[in-house]
């Protein structure tokens, strides 16, 4: 995990994740935001693979890039005002500056707390131990209840989404 190639891919991938995520939240045109988001999720999937969790990387690409990003693109194209209006009230400006300030404060607090815990400065053990067989076995034995609960949750979520989206517009 300390070869130059690993360093290179680590830095390229993390820069890609951060840049595309920043692009996804800062473009004015929502279609550009959706595309950058898809790239950010793709880079995150590659990042998971780099960390040794191959299966999770492919799940991330399937679920996030294939479903969530496409869903967000559909909604962006359905909700017509794809470009944020340019009018800015002072209330909006205060809200934006406060939001950025709060986020920076949270980031600094996280950084300080991360670097003040020296027990976190560990290197990874060699040889990743990812095995899909073990994962599947655990999923249907030890974690069968969370699995069923997730299935129920997804069913309810899909039903709710269909019911919400197919409702008639209520009269004002």
């Amino acid at each position: 995990m300390n070869s130059p190639l690993f360093f290179l891919s680590y830095f390229v991938l993390s820069a890609l994740v951060l840049v595309t995520a920043m692009a996804a939240v800062s473009f004015r045109n929502l279609v550009h935001c959706g595309l950058s988001l898809a790239f950010a999720f793709l880079a995150l999937g590659a990042f998971y693979i780099l960390l040794g969790a191959e299966f999770l990387g492919f799940v991330q690409i399937l679920v996030y890039v294939g479903a969530v990003a496409v869903l967000i693109m559909f909604v962006i194209l359905l909700a017509k005002p794809g470009v944020e209006e340019r009018r800015w009230g002072w209330r909006d400006l205060v809200g934006r500056f406060a939001g950025v300030g709060v986020s920076l404060a949270v980031f600094l607090a996280l950084l300080i707390s991360v670097f003040r815990s020296p027990s976190l400065a560990v290197k990874a053990p060699e040889a990743p131990v990812f095995s899909i067989a073990v994962l599947g076995e655990k999923l249907v034995t030890e974690y069968v209840l969370p699995l069923q609960a997730t299935g129920l949750l997804l069913t309810v979520a899909v039903l709710a989404a269909v019911i919400f989206a197919s409702q008639e517009v209520t009269k004002k």
Partner: peptide, 29 residues
């Protein structure tokens, strides 16, 4: 590359998301 570097990356990503939640005027974002 220690655990720190991953935690810093995840903190940065979290705060980018927080900016979108707090500062954008668009429910999709």
């Amino acid at each position: 590359i220690t655990l720190h570097t991953y935690l810093v990356l995840s903190a940065a990503l979290f705060c980018i998301g927080l900016v979108a939640v707090l500062a954008r005027r668009n429910a999709i974002l």
